[in-house]
Computed example of a mutant assay.
Amino acid sequence: MLAYSTYSEAGGVGKTSTAANLAVAHARAGLKPLVVPLDPQDGNLSRLFGVDDQRTEPVDNIVRHMIRRPKGDFDDLVRSAEGVDIVPEHNMLSDLAEYLRREKEQAEAMGEAFGMHAQLLRVLREAGVPEKYDVLICDPPATEGPHLYNAIHATRSLAIPVEPTAKGRAAVEGLESLVAGLEDQLEVEVGVLAAIPMGFKNTRDQRQILDQIEYPVPEIIGERASLMEGCWMEQCSAFKYVREFRDRQRDYEIETLAQFDRIARHLEQDVGLEAPNPPEPGNLTHEVMSI
């Protein structure tokens, strides 16, 4: 199983859009992806895919499962869009740290162990996610805390959208110490599968910054603000937006879709996962295999 979290300390770099488009790229190749977004803020992955309609309602959600108070089966949480299964975010995520702390205190009072940062992994394993899915993607917030720690504990690997600026370089440089700290704190090994530069304009300064990235860089994605804004407006991936909402296909946008396809293949190959029906990169007429 391929499992990774999309993470960047820098906000506004396209972390959630990257997670969504890579998930669709995996599905286009005949794989079965599950996305577990953990961002408590509005404008999250559930919103992008249009499955956030119950986030304010008193319904079962991922937080209840993480604190051992589920109202139903894990499978009942799952919604689907564009061939991707998603566990929608819920407003209870805003207080995840407090919920986990209370549960830990109650468990310890009963003489039980409760790892605050291992609860998402527990939920996914108990639900049989590694057996049911080919790909797991977590999309935590950029800030450190239980959302991020649970995501990394569950996936053990990162895909990092990178802003090709001095700020982005500082975020990447800080990532090494962050990963080392997480490995010590969580007692797991954390790998970086890829750095994905976003918004590249091919300036000299940007080229110098990219040359300093020590992680694998499978693709460099250019400035695509209009495309990504369109995705949020229509609540869909870039693949669906170009196919259904653009009045004409633009070569540079087709190339961006091809890049997401190629990045997905890179990530799959890193763990020896073979996609059964990979498309020609960027091919919008490709038929997705039913699983």
Rank of each mutant, 00 (worst) to 15 (best):
H147E: 09
H147L: 12
Y149M: 11
Y149L: 08
Y149V: 02
Y149T: 11
N150S: 01
N150M: 06
A151R: 07
A151C: 05
H153D: 07
A154W: 09
R156L: 06
R156D: 03
R156I: 02
L158P: 04
L158Q: 03
A159V: 15
I160C: 15
I160D: 08
I160Q: 05
P161R: 14
P161V: 14
V162A: 15
V162T: 14
E163G: 05
P164S: 04
P164M: 09
P164L: 05
T165P: 04
K167L: 15
K167R: 13
K167W: 09
K167D: 11
G168D: 10
G168F: 10
R169Y: 12
R169Q: 15
A170K: 10
A170F: 07
A170C: 00
A171K: 07
V172L: 14
V172E: 07
E173R: 14
E173D: 12
G174S: 11
L178K: 06
A180I: 03
G181I: 01
E183W: 01
E183M: 03
E183Q: 09
E183P: 03
D184S: 11
D184Y: 10
D184M: 09
L186M: 08
L186H: 09
E187R: 05
V188C: 09
E189P: 06
E189I: 07
V190E: 00
V190C: 05
V192Y: 08
L193N: 01
L193V: 03
A194M: 09
A194W: 05
A195R: 02
A195V: 12
A195D: 04
P197Q: 06
P197V: 03
P197G: 04
M198Y: 00
F200I: 08
F200Y: 15
N202Y: 06
N202V: 05
T203Q: 06
T203M: 00
R204S: 10
D205F: 01
Q206A: 11
Q206N: 03
R207K: 15
Q208T: 13
Q208P: 00
I209V: 12
I209D: 03
I209W: 04
L210A: 03
L210Y: 03
Q212H: 10
I213R: 14
I213H: 07
E214R: 13
E214F: 00
E214I: 04
Y215N: 03
Y215R: 01
P216L: 10
P216E: 12
V217L: 04
E219A: 07
E219M: 12
I220A: 07
I220S: 08
I220V: 15
I220T: 15
I220G: 00
G222L: 05
G222C: 03
R224H: 13
R224T: 15
A225Q: 10
A225N: 12
S226N: 11
M228K: 14
E229G: 14
E229C: 01
E229N: 15
G230Y: 09
G230K: 05
C231W: 05
M233W: 02
E234D: 01
E234P: 00
Q235N: 12
C236V: 11
S237V: 08
S237Q: 06
S237C: 03
K240D: 11
Y241C: 00
Y241V: 02
V242S: 10
V242M: 05
V242H: 03
F245Y: 15
R246H: 04
R246I: 03
D247S: 15
D247H: 05
R248I: 01
R248G: 09
R248F: 08
R248T: 08
Q249T: 06
R250Q: 13
R250K: 14
R250G: 02
